[in-house]
Amino acid sequence: MKGPVLAVVELQGAGPVRPSLEALGQAAALARRLETQAWALAVGPRAASCAALLGRYGAQRVMAGGVAGSERLCALLFTDAVEPSIRELRPQAVLFAATPWGSERAARLAARLGVDLAGAITSWRATDPGTLRVSRSVYGGRLVEELEFTDRVPWMLTLRPNIFPLGPAASGRIPEPVPLEVPPPGSSCCRLLEVIVSSRAEPPLAEAAVVVSGGRGMGGSKPFSILRDLAEALGGAVGASRAAVDAGWMPPERQVGQTGTVVSPKLYVACGISGAMQHRAGIRDSRFIAAINTDPEAPIFRFADAGVVGDLFEVVPRLTEAARGKRRETLEKA
């Protein structure tokens, strides 16, 4: 029998992050295709207690272990901790979510195992039992490449957040956690001194279902407050074009596009953004793109699903009002 498909799950606070559950769902789908089992691996103080949840999202077995702080174990110690179990398990494939946590650990683990890794994939298909084909964006989203894995295993993948649906969420049986030996975080030469959490409760750009971005048309940092209101009404995050970040209106971690964050939300709202190549390429995987700009000739309109030619300072507040109204309606119905 083939080795299992393993999803390595990122834990934060009380449980697994959403992109990891998306990856687990794909691990379960790939396992079905290969007629093998889907396993999950989680490292953290409460990892074992997540077994039932991971079972609902597609895991048939769960490897779990760790003490306080080990969900933030540095990539080197993390790799030391999981390598022996993964070698013993001989998985057919190992999947991570392409979050900052997952990307750096997947790359290190692949190097340790001496296998290739396909990063931030957006689709996959198991063509015949011995091969796997995956697609991923390259050149900042300007081109898409398809890669093929041969029979050298494990196939290692990281999955772009927001692309894949959440897994089965079926009421399968609760997998029995298999204990995993994990060293304490204090033994690392790379010490985490402080976590600085952004004051606003906003999802990270790469994982947000809705992103509302502003560009040169915002004219300054203060007007971004109207975008924050809209993002809040839609349950999303605020982004900015490179021009807005270059001007110092928004911090670099809010930059969307190349040299910033490549996003793939369900809804992207571009306000006062003309749509330079680096920006357009960085939002290409968004499900629906709406653009608001005073210039009817702005390139962003050709790249949008819907466009409003108008003053964003008039349109955005109305859009916020309408979105709040709709949300109230939905709440009342429920």
Partner: peptide, 15 residues
Amino acid sequence: ALRRVSLTAPPEERG
């Protein structure tokens, strides 16, 4: 063990 089998420019324009 990983080789590129295709490279394409995705469609740029939308609705």
